[in-house]
Design a protein around this nucleic acid. Structure first.
Lengths: 344, 344
DNA sequence: CTGAAAGCGCTAACAT
DNA sequence: ATGTTAGCGCTTTCAG
C-alpha cells in the first residue's frame, strides 16, 4: 500500500503538509497543494480510512439497519439511502434484522465498533431499547417510529392513507370491510388500523373486531388471515378487504384464488404500498402508494443535514396516494345487507 | 467510549493481557481470562474495530458489490451473502453499481480504503479492468464471470439451463423460437445464448439472427424487444420466446398483453430465473429457476474458505431447474410451418 | 504557510 | 502467563 508518507516524499514535503493539501486544501499554498495532488495521483494514493477515522474519532460511514431486504419496499428504501449517502461520499454499513430484535442488537453492537457518524434504522419492536447501545449517535428512524423520545422520524402518513382507502370502499357501498392489519407492535400497523377505524366511524359503520385480523407482514400470514376472513359465513363475510402491507396483499390475492373468488366481482381489495406485482397482476390492484424512494432519500438527507449542524424537522410525514385500479367495485348486489346494518 | 484500557484497569491487568484475554483466550490463564471478560461485560466494552484493523492491517469486513439491489434475484444474492458473512462475524460493506462501470470503480476505490479482507462482486463489463484497483485482494465473482485469469467464480450453468428450456420448446413442436438475450458483454447472456443455439442445432432448427434480440436486462428493454419480435409478419413471427432474465420476462409478458396475444395459446414463453411474480402471474410462467440463495451463500463461503487458507475450487457451477408451468404449449395449429422449414 | 511530534485504540514482538 | 514497548497511517496541536 502506498501511504501518505510516500506521497509526501515524492512531493518533497512533510506528511503533515501532504495531509493538509489533500484534506484541507485552504491551509496550503497553491503551488504546494498542486505538487502534492500530483504526487498522490501518480502513486494512485488512496487514504486509509481506518487510520483517518481512528484519529478523527469517527468514520465517514453511516449505518443502515433495515428489516427485510427481500421486501421490494425495503429494498427501495435501501437503494435510496445508498444513493444519497454515496453522492455525499459516505460509506454505508448495512445490516438486515429480519424483524428480529436479537439481530438488531447484534447489528448495533457491530456498528458501534465502526464508529459511524449516524444511523438510519427501520425500527423493530425492540429498537427503543436497543438504541441504548449507541448513546449519542444521531439516528433517523425510517418508515416506522420506535417511540423513543426526541427521535427523528421520516414516515408516511399511514393514518390518512388507510383512512382514504377505507373511505373509498365505504363510498362504494361496502358495509363489511375487513382489514388485515399487521403486527400491532409496529407503528405503521397501528396507524393504518387507526385510519381504518376512523373511516368506518365517519362512514357510520360499526367496527367489528372479528373482521380485523393481525398478520406477520409476510405473504403466508396475509394468505392465512384472508382465508379466515373469507370463509366466514356469507352474512358475516366482508365484501371488501383492506390489507396493511405489500407482502400480505400478495397472500390475500392468493387466498381469493384458493377460494375461487373473483376480484372485484366477489370481493374488493385495496392494498397498502404499490409494487410492480400490484400493477401487473390481473386485475391490477387498487393500492395506497407510498413514495418509497423519496422516503429513503429524505431520511438520509435528514441525517446528513443533522450531521452538518443544519436545523431539521424532528418528524416528517410524506403523503400517500390512492391509486385506483381494477380490484375495487361496489359490493355484489345479491348479498344481504340487512344483517349487516344491525348496529349501525 | 469505554476502551480496552478501562477494562484492563478494572480487571487489574495490562492492556495487552486484556486484549489477549478477549481475542486469543488460549494465551491467558483461565482465572485472568474470566476476570477480564467480566470487566468487559460490566463496562459494556465494544472493541474499536478501526484501531484493531489498523493494527492488524486488515479489517474483519468484506466488500459486496452488486449490480442492482432492486432486482429480486440480486437482492436474494445479497441477503445470502449477508447471512453467511454475519454468521461468521464479518461486516459487509455493500455497494450498488447499477451496471455502471464508473460506479463500480468508485465502489472499489472506497472499498480499498477500508482494507477489506475480500470481495464478492457481480461483475459489470468493466470489472476486468477495475479489479486492478484492488491488487492482491481475494475476490469471488458471483453470478457472472469477468473473464479475469485465475478468478474464482460461483455461477449457474447458464448454457445447460438455456439449452433445456429451448429443447423443451422444440420438443413441443415449435420451429420458430425467438430469444431476448441480454447484453452480450455479460457472461450470463453469452452462455444462455450459446445454450439456445445448441438446442436449436440439436433440434435441427436453423439459427435465425432476426429472432434474437438484445435487451438491457430491464423490463422496458424486454418489452420493446418482445414487441419487435411479435409484430413480425405472421410467417416470420416466433411461436415461442425464451427470455434471458427475470426483468425482461416481465417486459415480454406485458408486450403480449399490449398486443392482445394469449399465453400460451398464441405464444409460448419461458423465462430465465424464477420469481414470485412468475409464480403468481396468470398464466404462471414456465421458467429456468436458479438457486439464488445458494449461489450467494456459496460465494461467501468460498471467499471465507479461501481466507482461511482452505483449498477451494476455482469455479463452481450450480444447476438450474426447468419448472414447467402454464405459459408453454404446442404451437398454434393454424400457423403455417411450411415457410419455416425452408432452410432446415 | 510548513514541520515536528504526539496520539487515536489496539495488538504483536520482545522481554521476563 | 503477563507486562513493556512500539507502531499501524493518519491528523492535529504547537512551534516556528
Amino acid at each position: 500500500m502506498t501511504g501518505l508518507e510516500d506521497v509526501a516524499k515524492l512531493a518533497g514535503v512533510s506528511p503533515a503538509t501532504a495531509s493538509r493539501a489533500l484534506s484541507r486544501p485552504e491551509l496550503v499554498a497553491e503551488a504546494t497543494r498542486e505538487r502534492v495532488r500530483e504526487a498522490a495521483r501518480t502513486l494512485g494514493y488512496q487514504p486509509n480510512v481506518l487510520a483517518r477515522s481512528l484519529r478523527q474519532r469517527g468514520s465517514r460511514a453511516l449505518g443502515l439497519v433495515i428489516t427485510d431486504i427481500l421486501n421490494a419496499f425495503h429494498a427501495t428504501l435501501a437503494k435510496a439511502v445508498q444513493d444519497v449517502a454515496d453522492a455525499q461520499g459516505y460509506t454505508l454499513l448495512m445490516f438486515n434484522t429480519d424483524e428480529e430484535p436479537a439481530k438488531e442488537r447484534r447489528a448495533f453492537e457491530t456498528l458501534r465498533g465502526h464508529l459511524p457518524q449516524g444511523l438510519i434504522v427501520v425500527p423493530t419492536p425492540a429498537t427503543h431499547r436497543n438504541l441504548d447501545l449507541l448513546p449519542g449517535l444521531p439516528v433517523v428512524e425510517l418508515d416506522r417510529a420506535s417511540g423513543r423520545a426526541g427521535a427523528y422520524t421520516v414516515m408516511v402518513d399511514n393514518e390518512v392513507g388507510a383512512y382514504r382507502a377505507v373511505t373509498h370502499l365505504a363510498a362504494l357501498g361496502h358495509r363489511r370491510i375487513g382489514m388485515i392489519v399487521g403486527r400491532l407492535d409496529i407503528s405503521t400497523a397501528v396507524e393504518r388500523h387507526e385510519g381504518y377505524r376512523r373511516a368506518l366511524l365517519e362512514a357510520g359503520l360499526p367496527y367489528r373486531p372479528e373482521l380485523v385480523l393481525p398478520g406477520d407482514h409476510r405473504e403466508a400470514g396475509g394468505r392465512a388471515a384472508a382465508h379466515t376472513l373469507l370463509t366466514l359465513p356469507p352474512a358475516e363475510r366482508p365484501t371488501a378487504l383492506f390489507v396493511g402491507n405489500n407482502e400480505m396483499t400478495v397472500g390475500a390475492v392468493l387466498a381469493t384464488r384458493d377460494l375461487g373468488l373473483r376480484l372485484p366481482g366477489d370481493l374488493s381489495l385495496v392494498g397498502f404500498d404499490d409494487s410492480r406485482w400490484a400493477q401487473t397482476i390481473l386485475p391490477a390492484l387498487t393500492v395506497v402508494a407510498q413514495p418509497a424512494y423519496e422516503l429513503g432519500a429524505l431520511a438520509c438527507q435528514t441525517l446528513l443535514a443533522r450531521l452538518a449542524g443544519e436545523p431539521v424537522p424532528t418528524s416528517v410525514r410524506l403523503q400517500t396516494t390512492l391509486i385506483e385500479r381494477d380490484s375495487v367495485a361496489p359490493p355484489p348486489a345479491g348479498r344481504p345487507l340487512s344483517q349487516t346494518a344491525g348496529s349501525a
